[in-house]
Structure formats: C-alpha cells, structure tokens
Design a protein around this nucleic acid. Sequence first.
DNA 1: CTGTTAGCGCCTTCAC
DNA 2: GTGAAGGCGCTAACAG
Lengths: 343, 343
Amino acid sequence: MTRTEPARNPKPVTLTDVARLAGVSVATASKALNGRDQVAPATRQRVIEAADRLAFSPNPLARGLIAGRTGTVGLLTSDLVGRFVLPILTGAEDAFGAGQVNVFLCDARGDAIREQHHLRALLSRRVDGLIVVGERTDPRPSLGPDIPVPVVYVYAPSDDPADLSLTPDNTGAARLAVEHLVGSGRTRIAHISGDPAYAAAQDRAVGTREALAAAGLELVGDVMFSDWTEHWGRDAAALLLEHHPDVDAILCGSDQIARGVLDTARDLGRRVPEDIAVMGFDNWEVLTTNSRPQLTSIDANLQHLGRTAAQRVFAALDGVDVGHGIQYLPTRLVIRGSTIARR
Amino acid sequence: MTRTEPARNPKPVTLTDVARLAGVSVATASKALNGRDQVAPATRQRVIEAADRLAFSPNPLARGLIAGRTGTVGLLTSDLVGRFVLPILTGAEDAFGAGQVNVFLCDARGDAIREQHHLRALLSRRVDGLIVVGERTDPRPSLGPDIPVPVVYVYAPSDDPADLSLTPDNTGAARLAVEHLVGSGRTRIAHISGDPAYAAAQDRAVGTREALAAAGLELVGDVMFSDWTEHWGRDAAALLLEHHPDVDAILCGSDQIARGVLDTARDLGRRVPEDIAVMGFDNWEVLTTNSRPQLTSIDANLQHLGRTAAQRVFAALDGVDVGHGIQYLPTRLVIRGSTIARR
DNA sequence: CTGTTAGCGCCTTCAC
DNA sequence: GTGAAGGCGCTAACAG
C-alpha cells in the first residue's frame, strides 16, 4: 500500500460531502463556512464541525470560476541559479499578506519554445496574471500583446514599451555606493566590473562616474570590464594595485568580483577596510556574509520588486491603469565590515 | 494602451473558436482533435489545421471527469536558497524529453500553513502528481495518505515509510570521497563538518569512518562539527593544523566550509593540493569553480534525482508499483585542483 | 433561516 | 455530422 498507488487514493472532499454529513444543502454549507449571516448559529456550528472532520478545504479554482479571479500568478523565469527569481517569488507571495496569493514558478531556461509551453500550461490553469523574470537587466523579447491576463516583467525589462517592466535602478545604485565611499572619507576610487555586454555593468559604470563627478572626484583608472568571476576580481585587483597603488576604495560590479578583490588585497598585504575599502554588488548572502571582512554591498530589493509586481498584476485586474514602460526601483545599501571598520 | 489593461486583451482561444474557424460544431471539433472515429478525414484535417492556426490548447481543467493526464507535476519546496530545488526542477522537466512535462514550483518556506495553501492550489489545478523537496536530508512530515495523486519526496525524505522518498546516498558519498583521497596517496585525513543536528553531517561522518577503516586508516582527530559556514571552516582548519600539523587531507562537510579551509591553509603557508588536499561537498558551482585552487567536491546528482522523481510519479499514474520507503541514490565525484595537482 | 435554481468557462458525451 | 445536455465545485440570487 503505497502513497503512489492511485487506486487507493481518496478523492478530495468537496462541499457536497460536508453538506451531506451536516445534513444541510450545499448552499447552506457554503454560507455557513463563508460567514454569511443568514445561518442559524447551531447549523453553522454543525457545518463547521463536519468540515473539520472531513478536513474540507474549498477548491480555489471553483471559487475562481465565480469570482473571476483565482489569486494565482504564474512566474516565468530563465534564472537557472535562482538568485534573482526566488526572492522575487517570495515577495510576490507576500504582496497581500500570507496565504492570499499563490505563485507557480516555471523555468524556461532561456528557451522560447519551453517558454511558450509553460505559458500555455499556466494560462490554461487560470492564473490571474504573469510575472516574467530574466536574469539580466537587458531587455528581453516581449511575450507579445496577445496574453489574456496582465503581465509584468521584472528584473529583465520587456523590449516592448507597451509592456510594464520593473527593474532595479542600477545607476542610482552605483550612486548610492559612491556616496557611501566618499562619505566615509575615500577619494581614490576605482571600479572593477564584469561583462561589459551587460546593461547592469554599463549602468553601474555610468552611475559611478556621475556620482564621482558630483563629488568633484574622478575615477582612478578606467572602469575595468571582463567577467563576473572571482578570478577576474583577483587579477583585476592585482593589476589595479600595481598601477595605482594609492587607490583607497574599489567598487566592484558584483559580489563575486569583490570576493576576488578581497583575496588579492590580503595577498598583497593591504588591510580592508583600513587601507582599502571594497564594495560588492547584489548582496548575495552566501558571498557577502562569509568573506573576511564581510562585504558591504548593494541590495536590489528583489522582494520588494516581486511584491510590487504582484500588486500591479492584481491592480490591473481591477481595471486600474498601472502604466507601462520601464520603471526603475530603488536599491538599498547594506554596510558591512569591508568599508567601515567595526567598533 | 498597456499590456496590463485587461479590456484590450484577447480571450484565450477555446474549442469554440476552433470550431467556428473550421466551420464545424464544437462537438465535431472535439471528436476530430481527440481522434474519435466518427469524423470524416477531410473534416478532421480542417479542424486540426484550424487548431494549429489558433495555437489552440485544450483547457485541462474543463475536462470535468476523466483521468486525462495533464503532464504537469507540482513541486512543493521549502528550499529558500534554491540550491537544491532548482536542479531538481530541471531534472523533473527533462524526465521525458523537452516539452513533455510542466513543473509548477511553489515555495512553502517551511511553513505548514503555506504548504497546505499551495497544496490545495496545485491539486485543484489538476496536477498529475507532486514532488516534495526539503533542504536537508532529515525526514520531514508526510503530507499524509489522503493526497489524490502520487507523491514523491526528494532530498528530504518523508517520515512515513509508506511514502516514496528519494535522497542522496550521503554515506556512500563520503566513501567515494575518502577513496579518492586515499587513492591519490593521502593517509592523514581529517573531517571538518557542519551542524551535527543535520542527518547529512552524521551520514557523511559515518561514511568517512567506514571508508577509512576499510582502507586500514583512522581519522586524524575527531570529526569537527559546528556549522556550515566559511567562518567555521577557517577556524576549524586553524585548530586542526595546530594540533595535527601532519594532516595531509581535509574532507569538508560542505563547499562553504572547504572555502574557509582553503583560506586558512593559504594563510598558514600550506600549499593545496601539494601539502594538503581539500575536498568540499555539494558541488555548489559558485563556490567550487571560483576558489583557488578549484574545489574537488561531491555532486548529489540533483538533476537525476528530479528526473527519477518525475518518472516515478508518472509510473505510479500508470499503475506501476514504484515502491515506497527511502531510496538512496548514488552521488558523483567531481575532481578539481584542490586534491590533484594540475598537469 | 434554509433549500432550490442558475450559472461561472470549457469540454465531452449523448441523442438525433 | 450536429445541436443540446451534462458536469466539474462552488456561490449568488431568489423562493419557500
């Protein structure tokens, strides 16, 4: 007798079962359970007990048939690592308090065919709306205008300006970072970033330059682009410290790069943060909180992004005009020991 | 005109649309598409073309009664980080080739209430089965015997032996690791692990001891337990190298710990792998491929686990007895520079 | 107060 | 080959 033997498995209990056990009609049972006030207290009690006894839980889809809304959104992603999509998912679920929203995540792995396949599956399952998440902030192809439910693009914006997209404000984020460094007394600031083909790399570089200019400073050397790895962080830092030994802060394009930079700094005997401040980007906890010292970083507020996306989906369902185009949401500075000495 | 304005959005295409386009009744269209034999071949052809043209996909929910498999499984997880669940999801989707299976992932965040909520949502959407994924290998509460579809527990096994659970063979994994170390000439092997409350920590410790004994060796010192962090890895390695300077290999309970161990080894001037071999566990790429040197690790074959789970779900649907209890699946050794010098 | 009736949106199965 | 009926599980109107 295994749980995986379908023949043995009971059907889910329906309102009809409850009504029968309580000796009332389905309508009465429905009213009793939904707190309508046209039911005798004794009857209500009986129904509730029956429901409890049968462990009844209403079929949300049947409710959705009537309400025209199921409280479920589909989350289409291509973020294999899940670094971005999972916080976004969590945020979306919490958009209206616990247990109000269901999110179904499907992974398309960057494949248009798979995306269509999942899209169909989600739509036929009556999701109220869709959230589409990509793993970089470069525009991605729109799902098109023919989706029968509201769609919000998150992190990776849609390439169609008629769509609504929510993405972190990377330019502003870099500004935050530089202001933090300058505010804590740094003046010789360099920027080691990742793959220049990423919009995120470009936006952060622009923001860095702008904020430096605003503070009357100039970047030490050029922005160093290559890839988003620790390895590059190590190499770049070695190069940088050789050519510009007087650098007193390194803003990195990702936490991984920052980890590499920390390694090299240590190898070369530079103390962090005393001699050099090091900052990461993305606030990926497994990297930031485990390094020596812990990494100051920029958090993209992904949960907030997810929450906002879900709220927009349901607002659109309510007929509210939620706007369109790319909306840039604020990021958050997380200060740790790599920029400010403890105590 | 935004994509999120519901009034502008076309309805999904239904059988009615197909029938209209093909110039037949819905009934005929239904028969034609379902391969019933009371339809003229020409008509059937026309209907099929119409369906294609409209990209029609039948709504799996509207088939009130019959068993028609929907090719969809629900994935219930509590793995916030997604390190385990995402490869498992990928594997499940690939169980029968691309585009055959849809997986809907729901995150319960370790909360029983949320889990019930998602469970209902998934079941009402007519998923064919469920895969339940936890983030540790300790047993988790069963969903109970009253689920109307096959359920397979992955990574975290169910506490009910009547359920089917698939989990990595941690004991065997540790054996693999020790055999690799011994096979490459190490004899003074220590084991730094994580939180001893985790079954994974205990299982790996047992496997390590067994394999050492089988090789006629003994562990250097005791197994060192604390937590799964780089920080602990650094501290533990310092302690270990002080008390047992002659150690020539350190098997770590996780990649994070191993990263910390690598740091300390470098600080103390021990060369890896020449003086000391270091091994991680879990093969978390962001950690293993970015370290200096890259980390040899044990891969739990999570994709294979996911694929197997999905296959079991559908086999059970076909009435095959897929067994029950905990099944331990083999792991895989991934050799990198931290145990064997390159070239 | 409670039961009856009528759908929600879609598909399948009857009769004709 | 067709139209009409039936059903999924639930709730909202109305009757009684």
